[in-house]
Design a binder for these strands. Structure first.
Lengths: 156, 156
DNA sequence: GGAGTAAGTTGGAAAACACAACACACTGAA
DNA sequence: TTCAGTGTGTTGTGTTTTCCAACTTACTCC
């Protein structure tokens, strides 16, 4: 991930300048605006209604309405009509939304460690212990770390 | 993580309204502004100089200067003076910054799958296969998923 | 000297955001 | 049957961020 070799001898940090084609940036285009991830957290918690999402996140109603519309357009959430006249929706995660679980978990754990004094919430695994996640490779089962990952340009 | 039980019978979605004390929100206070994560990606790639970070991310120089200052104040990066008169710095990740690896990786992989047509970059594990990360519990070694994690309020 | 490089800072226009008030259709109580 | 209350947004009005280009400062190299 960091300082990876692209071709033998070519490093990310040495490529010619220019905005990188990058799925991190693409993900942030969808998720990176203020309130978006917090709204997704709430919907993931099972909060379905607009006013409650606003209440739990602290987002103002106009901005929240905008974010929910964009997240729906991006296919991360689904709005289910439960009343016509006036139109009223419930919000649910799509598969893309549910697959944000690792992102949310990674961010939360980083926050626990580096951004708060003491966590207000303990996430516990089904084994009974507080969750502490290891990343392992799906193929070989060994740890995935900073220096066991390197990037390659995909061929055209 | 989602719709978890806090105490037997108490669900996140049923708690009284009010902004949640939450380490996800705390993490986003540090990392959530536009350009911050992209700048960290570059610094993680080994890009050390201001102008190159700006060039690879597309951030404008004034905003980037602001973000780098905030990230330093938050302890995620370190600026090393390599010239006085005029003051010039190199940017490096601190330990807190290096521990963002899982966050970046999770976001990138989500973006690969849901936010781009075809990834421009392939991240390969040392075993030779494209990285596909599994989350496993550090304690019991079993998978960590949406429904094997539940949250509890930390006791005061 | 003079050109080039590096890392910001500044100023003004454009966009995003926050907050309060409003609109609308319903629901239940007086 | 009126009338307050609820849920879900939208609108209007300022404030704050962001963007972009130009400027500044102090080197280094020719």
């Amino acid at each position: 991930m960091t300082d990876p070799e692209l071709r033998p001898g070519v490093r990310m940090a040495d490529l010619p300048l220019g905005v990188r084609p990058c799925s991190l940036a693409a993900a942030l285009d969808v998720l990176g605006e203020r309130w978006s991830l917090l709204a997704l957290r709430e919907i993931g918690y099972g909060v379905r209604r607009f006013a409650r999402i606003a209440g739990y996140t602290g987002a103002s109603r106009d901005i929240l309405a905008d974010r929910l519309r964009k997240l729906e357009a991006a296919g991360v959430i689904e709005r289910r009509l439960y009343s016509e006249h006036p139109p009223r929706h419930e919000y649910h995660l799509t598969e893309a939304g549910r697959e944000l679980f690792p992102v949310m978990l990674a961010l939360s754990q980083w926050g626990d460690r580096w951004a708060v004094d003491s966590p207000a919430l303990v996430r516990r695994h089904s084994c009974g212990e507080p969750v502490q996640v290891d990343l392992v490779c799906h193929h070989c089962g060994r740890p995935v770390t900073h220096d066991t990952v390197h990037a390659e340009l995909a061929d055209a």
